[in-house]
Design a protein around this nucleic acid. Structure first.
Length: 968
RNA sequence: GCCGCUAUGGCGGAAUUGGUAGACGCGCUGGAUUCAAAAUCCAGUUCCUCCGGGAGUGUGGGUUCGAUUCCCACUGGCGGUACCA
């Protein structure tokens, strides 16, 4: 039995594959446990050490639950559709299906190297037609349903058609794009096309012209969460707002349920807060204002109807069509100028400048409560998408309205007296109403109710809830995604492709570059034109495939349904979902949406997909830089040289091959990115230092690797080095370092394969867990991995003696040894349940240290520890399990049970404190009463020393905790 | 600005309902072994100290016999979000 981690890793990884050790059980007699990892997008750069953090954590839980007698579903798949694969394809000319196949194979190999216990027979790939057949089916179902607000669920469109035929929109309470009024006769008189257009107003997947995030560089529209700071998340290209005809999902219909559902799931507070913010619920009132000289009204949404007497003007969003109708001839020029100004401003300008701008339309509205005449302005600060795109402006109680009023010289009427609330800001709903007619003297919350009631009574509005969340734009003018399963017939009526004709696969295309706003599929004419009509050429965003994949794993090969009823009834939902926090809002929110929709259809038995969510922390890596300087020699020449980061300008230097002089810096000098693989991390005088050694530079000159090629181009900027010498006489340069996200572009990604090859998978797994709490961000550093390796070997050596032979004996364990074992069982069992893996590793180390001290080589103690360590170090555990004569796999062995009896202590070491300061400890019988303990303490000579000459005012004794003498 | 998270030795981090702060590991120091080195093993390692002790969990207050833990007010770091009416 050699401690040869590479051989042991290989042996067992092979065995597991051969014996399908991790096959999901098919009998349904045992309780189920579903542990899911967020499936990765298989990029060309492979996994770095940050990815496995979550995979290892979930793997530990999966193995733990298996040993505890659960049927465990622990699958892995690939989120293979989407922009990156397509961008890569365009750049390299390799078809995305090919690069995806290569990358998924690589990912699979890397995951196997880590010893992850996935059931690969259940793997899914979102770009596989067998999979996306059901993505298309689900979205088709969304298209075929509308949202009945009274029933508070999705219902088939056919039922809506029936209702419209009989009653028109009368009594209809549906989630809709706009409020319509259609009689039953009108509806019955409509032709197919007209009906289809009307139904689009209600469908949960609908097509409409709306302002969308258009990214010219990517040639496609993007969802709100794909845009960050006015730029595309992928590629960082500028994004503009543009009205376009697009497919959307009516997520707004589910806003309230998505909010309410957060109560029943176990997500972190931070994550819940993010979802709550994204949904952005606010309660207030919809108020109709008459417009002078116009038939229709101006509707506004306000959260502060109580301040209506303080309204002194109205503002509407510049984009609204109403602007044109309201503008008077005298104001026409001013409005046109302003609209032109707004049109010129990009999202970025708007966000960065935040100026007070606007223009007067010339029109006036009338305050429905007091008849006050209110000028109507347009201004950028009112957003077309929120509420009705119009506001009543109350400058006394809103910062923006106030700034606007000040700039345009509009009257400000104070309506809320906040003098009772000194710390209150304008945003706080606090104070007493003044100058407000019947509201005077009321506290704000009371006044809000009273004002809303009055407005309703007058028929001038109603209480309303508003959400910030926008419907989800679900079209992409790109190739590498699921085609919408829609065909437009000869009347341009969109019709669902029937399920028997699914999937709608992508046409083979050589060139799938997107051309401004037109899907590349448009060019595949023989694909587009079918006997039934023209195919929709937009594809779906990547989220289409990822928002339901957890269901497919339950029944991955079912060709008759996205998941079989029996399978979903058994597996139900995900018990533990592990993944990165970057998907906290979009992915989780959208899959919750689809889940709730499928719940409405009776296709899933639970209302939430993920019971518990764990966001693993990001592992950052050092980003290192080499410093370029100039050596100014006596002859006045400047030579570029590489210098240590700690060398200050003006320092005299002598550089081999160049000469002597001193360091100068100018704009050509400074930091240059250095690939991490050439950087050596050392610790000198308690300071961590990052160095570039001479031998690494030589290595970089020879290596074939990409990083080396990049580094060579960097190093060409100077061919002289101002080396320093370390204690061993080796030449190096000091580098500067910052912490950052691991990425290929920063050349700081560390490959887990390299670590596994050196230390073995078990060491890597335990080391990653040992870094700290799994949900916290931490920098990657290899310092410390040797400690874990040493521990594993020390643990191994408990079993193995002279000549690498198993040395375990059948002696009966001592009470002390049993205490060590059962303390470990208790700690590990509890901590895995708490997802506190770092403390589990510590517990193993402590137990190992103690067993070594006790020279324990007894089977009855050591054998159970193998089963305990199996989730963490599956390979070594399997090897030891086999050596001890265990049958089958250790991963199907029972989990050891803790026997509390062995944990009991005869004595407890009491800390004895005086006035709260612990001075000494005393061993006192563990079952001593309060009085016994106090007496024992008082009897101690040391204690008496502390009490000498003092009055004991009080003695606090907490049995099995501590003793505290309060003395004066 | 708002929301969330977070702050403990030289470093990563531990500490049950408030009860011995610094477990475990790294690093460092000394020793053993060795021709030597690596590896391994043993001991020490929060800081200050006149060796009696004293201080100490981001800062300032509070509750308590007792606070890393609970409360109030700040400060720094990380993440999200932002003219949302």
């Amino acid at each position: 039995m050699k401690f040869d981690v590479q051989a042991i890793d290989k042996k067992w990884q092979h065995y597991w594959k051969e014996h399908k050790t991790y096959a999901t059980p098919t009998d349904q007699t045992k309780p189920k446990f579903y542990v899911l990892d967020m499936f990765p997008y298989p990029s060309g750069s492979g996994l770095h050490v940050g990815h496995p953090l979550g995979y290892i954590g979930s793997d530990i839980v999966a193995r733990f639950k298996r040993q505890r007698g659960f049927n465990v579903l622990h699958p892995m798949g690939f989120d293979a559709f989407g922009l990156p694969a397509e961008q890569y394809a365009i750049d390299t000319g390799v078809h995305p299906s090919e690069s995806t196949a290569v990358n998924t194979t690589r990912y699979r190999e890397q995951m196997d190297t880590l010893g992850l216990s996935f059931d690969w027979d259940r793997s899914v790939n979102t770009s596989d037609p067998k999979y996306f057949k059901w993505t298309q089916w689900i979205i088709g179902q969304v298209f075929d349903h509308w949202y009945d607000r009274d029933a508070d669920r999705a219902r088939p469109i056919a039922e809506l058609v029936e209702q419209l035929k009989q009653r028109g929109t009368d009594g209809l309470n549906a989630a809709e794009t706009e409020s319509l009024d259609v009689s039953a006769e009108d509806f019955r008189a409509m032709n197919e096309k007209e009906r289809s257009d009307l139904l689009m107003n209600y469908r949960l997947a609908f097509r409409s012209v709306s302002y969308v995030n258009w990214c010219e560089a990517l040639g496609t529209v993007l969802a709100n969460d794909e845009v960050k700071d006015g730029r595309s998340e992928r590629g960082n290209h500028p994004v503009e707002q543009r009205p376009m005809l697009q497919w959307s999902l009516r997520i707004t219909a589910y806003a309230e349920r998505l909010l309410a559902g957060l109560q029943e799931v176990d997500y972190s507070e931070g994550l819940k807060a993010q979802q709550v913010n994204w949904i952005g619920k606010s309660t207030g009132a919809l108020v109709h204002f008459d417009i002078e000289g116009h038939d229709h009204q101006l509707d506004i949404f306000t959260t502060r109807p109580d301040t209506i007497f303080g309204a002194t003007f109205m503002v509407i969003a510049p984009e609204l069509e109403l602007v044109d109708q309201l503008t008077t001839p005298e104001q026409r020029q001013e409005i046109d100028d302003y609209l032109a100004y707004v049109g010129r401003r990009s999202e970025l300008d708007r966000m960065s400048e935040n100026k007070v701008t606007g223009a007067f339309t010339g029109a006036y509205a009338t305050n429905p409560l007091n008849g006050q005449r209110l000028p109507i302005y347009i201004a950028e600060y009112v957003l077309k998408d929120y509420g009705t795109g119009a506001i009543m402006a109350v400058p006394s109680d809103d910062d923006r309205d106030k700034r606007f009023a000040e700039k345009f010289g509009i009257e400000i009427i104070d309506v809320v007296d906040k003098s009772n609330y000194p710390g209150a800001t304008l945003k706080d709903k606090l104070g007493i109403l003044i100058n407000s007619d019947f509201l005077n003297g009321m506290e704000v919350p009371e006044a809000i109710l009273a004002a809303t009631e009055r407005i309703e009574a007058l028929g001038r509005g109603k209480a309303q809830v508003n959400y910030r969340i926008r419907d989800l734009v679900f079209s992409r003018q790109r190739y590498w995604g699921e085609p919408w399963p829609i065909i437009y017939d000869e009347h341009d009526v969109p019709r669902l492709v029937p399920v028997e004709d699914l999937p709608v696969t992508l046409p083979e295309m050589e060139d799938f570059r997107a051309v401004s706003g037109v899907s590349p599929l448009e060019r595949a004419q023989e694909w587009v034109n079918t006997p039934l009509g023209r195919r929709e050429t937009d594809t779906m965003p990547a989220t289409a495939g990822s928002n339901w994949y957890y269901l497919r794993y339950m029944d991955p090969h079912n060709d008759g349904a996205f998941v079989g009823a029996e399978a979903v009834d058994y597996w139900k939902d995900v018990d533990l979902y592990v993944g990165g926090a970057e998907h906290a809002v979009s992915h989780i929110l959208y899959s919750r949406l689809i889940h709730k929709f499928l719940y409405d259809l009776g296709r899933v038995p639970t209302s939430e997909p993920y019971k518990k969510l764990l966001n693993q922390g990001m592992i950052g890596g050092p980003i290192s830089y080499i410093h370029l300087g100039l050596l100014l020699t006596q002859d006045g020449q400047r030579h570029p040289i590489w210098v240590s980061s700690d060398v200050a300008e003006g320092t005299p230097l002598t550089v081999d091959g160049v000469g002597s002089g001193h360091l100068v810096l100018d704009e050509s000098t400074g930091q240059r990115l250095t690939p991490l693989r050439f950087v050596t991390e050392t610790s000198v005088n308690n300071e961590t230092s990052f160095r570039l050694y001479h031998h690494s530079v030589e290595e970089a000159q020879r290596m074939e690797h990409q990083d080396a090629a990049y580094f060579r181009t960097i190093l060409q900027q100077a061919n002289a080095f101002a080396w320093k010498t370390d204690r061993e006489g080796k030449a190096y340069l000091e580098l500067s370092v910052e912490q950052g996200k691991m990425s290929k572009r920063k050349y700081n990604a560390v490959n887990p394969d390299d670590i596994c090859a050196r230390y073995g998978a078990d060491c890597f797994r335990m080391y990653e867990m040992f870094l700290g709490p799994i949900d916290q961000a931490k920098p990657w550093s290899v310092s410390g991995i040797d400690g874990v390796f040493r521990f594993l070997r020390r643990y191994w050596n408990l079993f193995v003696g002279e000549g690498d032979r198993l040395s375990v004996t059948d002696e009966e364990p001592s009470r002390e040894e049993l205490k060590v074992l059962h303390t470990l069982i208790k700690k590990v069992t509890e901590d895995i349940d708490k997802l506190s893996f770092n403390t589990c590793v510590s517990a193993f180390m402590v137990a190992t240290n103690e067993l070594i001290k006790l020279k324990c080589g007894k089977r009855k103690v050591l054998e159970p520890t193998v089963r305990l360590i199996a989730p963490f170090a599956p390979h070594l555990a399997e090897e030891l399990h086999q050596a001890l004569g265990g049958s089958n796999s250790v991963h199907h062995a029972d989990w050891p049970e803790v026997v509390e009896e062995y944990l009991k202590e005869d004595t407890f070491t009491y800390p004895i404190a005086f006035n709260g300061k612990t001075r000494l400890t005393l061993d006192i019988s563990a079952d001593a009463t309060k009085q016994d303990v106090e007496d024992a303490a008082r009897a101690d000579t040391q204690v008496q020393g502390y009490l000498e000459g003092k009055t004991v005012r009080k003695v606090i004794v907490v049995p099995r905790r501590m003793v505290n003498f309060v003395v004066g």
